[in-house]
Design a protein around this nucleic acid. Structure first.
Lengths: 182, 182
DNA sequence: GATCACATGTAAGAAGTTACATGATTCT
DNA sequence: AGAATCATGTAACTTCTTACATGTGATC
């Protein structure tokens, strides 16, 4: 029952799409908005080693010729491990404190059935709606006694969640439409 | 030149507002939207110990009577350390990858002059505008070949940053107004 | 042949997580 | 007295950061 760090799951997700080397993976983090993760070799190579030890990924014998490169691919166990991470029901804490990780999970759910995707989004929507309510109650109680700078910081948070409320509404509609078309 | 973790600065910021115990600090993280931080004693007490060792905070001799409680307060060195953290110019990376930390810094800038606050917000605005541009270019290039789930995750990010663009615009106006009034 | 970019890795240290340990005070 | 809560702390483990080390192929 190997439990991985978020970085581990990110690597696993990318390796499920296509075999890549540690260097390739690094480049993905540098050159795409997945920059949430560090491009540091000191994080990536040890993480690959862990995944490898747990049999979630396996090196591919490269036909070589070019530079020395160690390509890895996700194993069947790796795919299952990733799938069970992706399938976990979004919690209140995911929504309130780990939005970025939640969106990483969503991004990798490409292989999911539209129904699963829809349930995932609807769970997010429910927690989001409850949490923005909490924030607004907090503002109503504490809002006026906060200094200006603190008020602004708080409002940034509220605005962010409100934007995600609008986003998830549109997302749900889009997936429902897609589902009917199929 | 003691360098602290983000949690360390969060504790320092709260202790600058008023003396508190480790337990008090924990409660702040649990009961306010500062939930970004862990309420785990295993993180908080060692962090207090470090700050104490670095002379950034000092225990207050409590007049006691009630429960056993160790109150801490920020020292002069602590205030200066915090101030220098708060004064650092927001970078592109702060905006693109550490928004939550940036907002924590903003929240503690209550003691800053309106001019400093304004410059802080304007720097955020500049980086934000550049970064959302990058994201939109990325969407224009890569957007259509992404699977639906990945597209949705990406759009969530873009929407979040767009919301912050609107927020920072309003924030700047509000601080400018406040400044004129003074 | 020297130099630069590619590519992989390790070592030391910092900090967080989980889980446990311990005692004091209040409540019933 | 016993239970619940308050309050502080420690230990083992995991992971990340920073900095360094190493070697290869391509380029001038």
């Amino acid at each position: 029952m190997p439990s991985d760090s978020t970085l581990g799951y990110a690597l696993l997700g990318l390796l499920q799409q296509a075999p890549r080397s540690g260097y390739d993976l690094r480049k993905v983090f540098v050159s795409t908005p997945m920059g949430l993760f560090s491009d540091s070799p000191g994080a990536i190579y040890p993480a690959l080693k862990r995944l490898s030890r747990r049999k979630c990924i396996a090196p591919i014998t490269t036909a070589s010729g070019g530079r020395r490169r160690r390509l890895f691919a996700a194993t069947e166990l790796g795919r299952r491990t990733l799938a069970s991470w992706l399938t976990q029901e979004p919690t209140r804490d995911d929504v309130a404190r780990r939005w970025d990780v939640l969106m990483l999970r969503l991004a990798f759910k490409s292989a999911s059935a539209p129904g699963a995707l829809l349930r995932f989004l609807e769970a997010i929507q429910a927690h989001l709606s409850e949490y923005t309510g909490e924030l607004e109650r907090f503002a109503a109680n504490q809002g006026h006694q906060m200094p200006l700078a603190a008020q602004l910081a708080f409002e940034s948070g509220v605005e962010g969640y409100r934007a995600q409320m609008r986003w998830v509404g549109r997302a749900v509609k889009r997936v429902r439409r897609r589902r009917r078309v199929r």
